[in-house]
Design a protein around this nucleic acid. Sequence first.
DNA 1: GCAACTCAATGACCTCAGAA
DNA 2: TTCTGAGGTCATTGAGTTGC
Length: 320
Amino acid sequence: MNSTPMSGNNKKSESQTALAVESDPVSDEKEILALVNQCKTGDADALERFFQIYGQDIYNFPIRVFNMTEDEAGDFFLFAFERLRDGRRMKTFVDDSKFRTWLYTVLRNLVIDWLRSRRELDLIPVERIEKEETRPGAEAVLTAGEELGGLLFRKLDQVPVLHKVIFKLVYLYYVDLTAAEVTFLEKEYALTPEEIMHFVLSTRSELADREEENLKKEDSLTHLYLSIHRLKEKRERLLSDGNKEKKDADAERERIELALDKKYATRNKILERKKKGLLVARVPYRVVASFLKIPEGSVSVYMGKVASFLTNDMELKKLF
DNA sequence: GCAACTCAATGACCTCAGAA
DNA sequence: TTCTGAGGTCATTGAGTTGC
């Protein structure tokens, strides 16, 4: 598999910046930085202090943002503790954003890792595995991802070479063709190595924009989770605030409920697209068909055959 | 309007029994 | 043993349909 040209996960996104919320329990930002730097070295006292300060946040995060139960949050806390306790992960924190911004990004990834480890979430598509490498907190995903990726490629070797090549052409943005597959294209489709190389490079370049859009969508998902979280907090504060005029409070609550509905609707729309695999930069069948000078229907049928082979495979089924 | 899927028609290939 | 043809299976195609 090739490294994806996009490195959106390395960039500090707007949504990550937006993750920062109100005030830190440790008011002095310099004090936090000093503590984090100590944690990076594995200092036991510093790590203990870190968990004293942020333990409650780590526990509350999945409850507030992912609507988990207290029991689940307790299990998640242990999972997160295991992964944060040696301080190594903090080395990924760069001092150009608020620490809490970074922490919430890591926690979000850890929640996903944890859910995945419980098989409550779909495993990441194989094409995402490479990208996860650059995201803070992806180590746990990689273990499962590498296993799935390796197995998937071994299974692909069991399908006819034509089907495998078509499959790879459709997912060209994320995978490379082997020398044998290029030779196959040269022989069977009368293509020159130059033509194949040009197709691969130009197609990837065109797909880069789409992939960036996809990454933005994923970023906005994180943003939405946090916006929902803030609105819920605001609503709670409103409920506990008895000083306000009842009329004002009702209007404010109504406004928050409306905003929440809108956020949920947008979030669900993105999740739905993600579930359908629409947030993946695929090469249109039409483009693959035109490149090989075969009908579009054939590409669809080949892809269907590979998909049915893979979904019926017992070993792959076990991983899902 | 585009992308992907479905389905019926057709073609290509494989197997096997029977004849020479 | 080799050739031939019938029958079955799988692959391919293009038109039409569906969903976004």
